[in-house]
Design a protein around this nucleic acid. Sequence first.
DNA 1: CCGCTTTCCTGAACCGGTTCAAGCCCCCCC
DNA 2: GGGGGGGCTTGAACCGGTTCAGGAAAGCGG
Lengths: 348, 348
Amino acid sequence: MGHNPTIADVAERAGVSKGTVSAVLNDKSSVSDATRKRVRDVIKAMNYRPRASAQHLLQGDGDRTIGLVIKEDDNPYYAGVIAGVRRVAGPRGYVLLVASSEGSSEAEHRVVEAMAAKDVSGLIITPALGEEADVTHLFELKRRNIPFVLLERIRGIQSHIVDIDNVLAARDAVGHLIERGHSHIVHFAGPPYSAHSQERVEGVRRGFSESSLVFRDEFIVPTGAHMEDGYETGLAYFRACGADRPTAVTCYNDLVAIGLLRALRELGLRVPDDVSVVGCDDLPLMDYLGTPLTSVRIPKEEMGAAAAEILIRHLEAEEPPPLEKVTLDAEVVVRASTTDLASADRAA
Amino acid sequence: MGHNPTIADVAERAGVSKGTVSAVLNDKSSVSDATRKRVRDVIKAMNYRPRASAQHLLQGDGDRTIGLVIKEDDNPYYAGVIAGVRRVAGPRGYVLLVASSEGSSEAEHRVVEAMAAKDVSGLIITPALGEEADVTHLFELKRRNIPFVLLERIRGIQSHIVDIDNVLAARDAVGHLIERGHSHIVHFAGPPYSAHSQERVEGVRRGFSESSLVFRDEFIVPTGAHMEDGYETGLAYFRACGADRPTAVTCYNDLVAIGLLRALRELGLRVPDDVSVVGCDDLPLMDYLGTPLTSVRIPKEEMGAAAAEILIRHLEAEEPPPLEKVTLDAEVVVRASTTDLASADRAA
DNA sequence: CCGCTTTCCTGAACCGGTTCAAGCCCCCCC
DNA sequence: GGGGGGGCTTGAACCGGTTCAGGAAAGCGG
């Protein structure tokens, strides 16, 4: 009897019918106290637990639920996306479930499968692409006719998409620095397998090519996506660079920038006087740092909201609607971490 | 025909049997191409989607899933808890679903219900208590025999519990400051309805009473739980206090402390020279601030891990195990935001 | 003591899928 | 032309609950 007990097992052991056990479970008044107690005891003894799927079978279909798959729990970036989804989905009566893929494609598969198995109404997914994008789970969703929206454009799959133009975002960051007279700019790039990171590197390249400056490969410094990465890379890089020190750094994201700020501080370099720093994402935190950080604003909330809109529209349509692609704009938010070399020259 | 189509509807419209439609859905090889196509077309046209609950009925019970209910998405505190749960639950084959109650008891009900309906194996819940704690949803979980662990002790419900002693935590924060010679200490308290906040206020009181200092009610300054709250309250408070300025502030949590730091910076007050600041939670961020922040370390990961341990042990037990109560310790992590007035005096 | 409620319980039907033994049809081959 | 086999489809049973018509037992009034 390794099997989980069913309502029939309980009924048999309690010497009553399935119907009676069900009545006890649902607190119907039509059960005598004695029977109720007896059944309750058996339920407890057998550690019986009704199977939700069997219950739902009868009473209409599941409630409205949206599943959101993010890449990391510890990046405040996603808090913004979540807020956006919630703002739209909440009032329409959808409950939001969040799961993280921890950046692993395999975990993403598991998580998406689990959500599909839980019968969510639809999904919003930030795909965690490794080298070889395995999108079988997305095809599985299509097969099962579960609508989903991607928050990152990926090859080989047709779907609703909401994203931003990362190339432009990074180009603008570099452009901002060049405008302000910087010419020795390095870019702390994110994880190499990340599509966002690659696109942003491409944007940096573009930023150079649109100016009179020459891009050199060593301007791209590989690092990760977390504070520690920015910190460690920052320490190592600025210790090693000697006199050939860049006047500005653009970072893959704000967390890396925060780490870099710490490294610079510990090395006795001032921001922005010695080094200008630009982040990306524009976390709410940016205004609260000792040196408020210039950052490229990614419209996190808007992305979440747009994705939720599209998803819900799909869910509530009679017939499958056409696929939507939305690209939102990023923009540089200037704060105190970037100095204007040109005006400094002028002053001198 | 408002009803969602079932497999029978599809079968009828396609002129085949239910079994055949099922075979098409599951990519069985035993269907002729012509039939397959016809069925697929009908499926698409009717926007048919199989009901997961019906599918699960046959093929054993649902997968292993743990639901975690947190209070806010935008507090990095929970990232730590989530990491702890994941560290334990992941290797044991559990998928983690997270939902936020947004601090509202009503939303918590909805979210818990939704997770129960989705048939999660068990739940870990950070209860969002309002004034009158409505715990009917927790009784509902008991009735349905869905195990859960609470991350905050609450009245009127027997359950597994993992928490910390907030009174001691706040007492230690105040004690730390008193040891260092501070006597004019105020506490930026969290939201009044929050149990954590109340306990921490109690701890502040305790910290005073264990010293020779007298506690005064006006030492407690009400605020919220977010950066903006600390910022605004900080601006208002330090503008108003004039010459009677406290030498130290303990904060409900680190976010409030970060907000306060910004306010002090903008007011031209130096930390820790003019004002010492102590946070609570000990977010990873604390080491990265311009002035690294002294904070009471709440063992977030350990809490999540302990809760997951207990829950899984319960889930995998044959018989319902006895309830467990675990209380973890908090400890002050001293960084650069608290100065030692005593040694400063000595030096003078 | 009889009829009529009321209380409590049973058992069969049902929800919407999956599974599989059985059967049909067609084709091939001897 | 008959036998055999493979491809395709059917239909009934089943999963584990809920629902509800109906029946047995108990209570009650006259």
